[in-house]
């Protein structure tokens, strides 16, 4: 299935802003995070189709997954 992945902030460095991938049915956000090489501890908000989602969410054909880093400074 086709999944569009959008990366935000410095997750883009050395990777991409937006890219389409072909993943098998049943793929979760967690697997994509790992395949892209992001550390889970650095991950802030996960968004699927514009809405907040959990990392174990199973994606569906045509979904857009957006990944934001953890931001905690003040």
């Amino acid at each position: 299935m086709q999944i569009k992945v959008k990366l935000f902030a410095m997750f883009r460095n050395g990777r991409f802003k937006v890219s389409e991938f072909d993943f098998p049915e049943g793929t979760t956000c967690r697997r994509i995070v790992a395949e892209i090489g992001l550390a889970e501890e650095e991950l802030g908000v996960i968004m699927v189709n514009g809405r907040h989602a959990q990392i174990d969410r199973i994606l569906a054909e045509g979904d857009t997954l957006s990944l934001f880093p953890l931001v905690g400074g003040g």
Binding site: E40, E41, E42, L43, G44, Q54, I55, L70, V71, G72
Partner: peptide
């Protein structure tokens, strides 16, 4: 709720 995170962000 979903996954373990660091106590500080990328700052």
């Amino acid at each position: 709720a979903g996954h373990a995170i660091a106590s500080n962000g990328v700052e």
